[in-house]
C-alpha cells in the first residue's frame, strides 16, 4: 500500500506559476478557478528583507475535516493509498467541505456544481506518471512519492531536512510537507 505524499521544498520555488497553469490544463479546471496556488511573502523593511515562496494544494489530510463533514460520502479518503478524493456523482454541492477545509483547498465547479480540489493527479499516478504540477515544476520544488518507500523522492528530500506541515494545530495531519528556509537579510 503506497502512502502518497508531497514535499514542497520552498527553497527551490521560484514563483514561476508553471504548476498553476499545468494543473489547470491537466485537470480541466475551469477559468478563474484553481486547485493549487503560489504565495509570495515578504517581510522586513527595505533593505533588510526576506522572502518566502510557497505553493499550496490539498494536503490529503490523514484526518480530513472535509471528509468528516461531507454529508453524502462524496468526499472520501481512499483506504489503499490515503488520497482524499471525490465522487462527483454523489456531491450535492452543499459546500460543507469548503467550510471545513482549513486550507481553502476546494472550490465549486461553476458549471457542474460539484466540489472539486487537487487529486494528487490520481489518474496520472495510476499510469506511473508524476502529478502534473510536479512534472513541470521548474524549480523541482514539488516532490512526490510514497512515504513508505525509503528510496522514494519524498523520503530522500525529507532526509536531514526540517519539514513542517501547514496549520499543524488544526489536527488535520496533512500529507504535504514543507521544507522552508528564509533568505538571510545581509
Amino acid at each position: 500500500m503506497p502512502k502518497y505524499a508531497m514535499v514542497i521544498d520552498q527553497r527551490r520555488c521560484v514563483a514561476c506559476m508553471a504548476c498553476v497553469v499545468s494543473c489547470k490544463k491537466e485537470n480541466e479546471v475551469p477559468p478563474e478557478h484553481f486547485r493549487t496556488r503560489v504565495l509570495e511573502m515578504v517581510e522586513g523593511e527595505f533593505p533588510k528583507l526576506r522572502m518566502e515562496l510557497r505553493s499550496e494544494l490539498c494536503n490529503h489530510c490523514d484526518n480530513p475535516p472535509c471528509v468528516a463533514n461531507c454529508p453524502t460520502g462524496a468526499s472520501y479518503k481512499r483506504e489503499e493509498d490515503g488520497l482524499v478524493l471525490l465522487k462527483k456523482y454523489r456531491c450535492v454541492g452543499c459546500k460543507a467541505c469548503l467550510a471545513a477545509c482549513p486550507y481553502d483547498a476546494r472550490y465549486i465547479n461553476p458549471d457542474k456544481g460539484f466540489a472539486d480540489k487537487c487529486t494528487f493527479c490520481e489518474h496520472r499516478i495510476k499510469e506511473g506518471k508524476e502529478p502534473a504540477c510536479v512534472a513541470t515544476c521548474i524549480g523541482k520544488s514539488r516532490i512526490f512519492g510514497d512515504m513508505d518507500d525509503a528510496k522514494s523522492p519524498v523520503r530522500v528530500a525529507l532526509q536531514g531536512a526540517h519539514a513542517e506541515v501547514l496549520l499543524k494545530h488544526a489536527g488535520t495531519q496533512p500529507r504535504v510537507y514543507y521544507i522552508k528556509k528564509f533568505s538571510k537579510p545581509e
Binding site: M17, T36, E40, L98, D104, Y107
Partner: peptide, 11 residues
C-alpha cells in the same frame, strides 16, 4: 507583503 496567485473567488 503577501501576493497569492491562483486563488478561488469562493474562498
Amino acid at each position: 507583503e503577501l501576493t497569492v496567485t491562483g486563488t478561488n473567488a469562493i474562498t
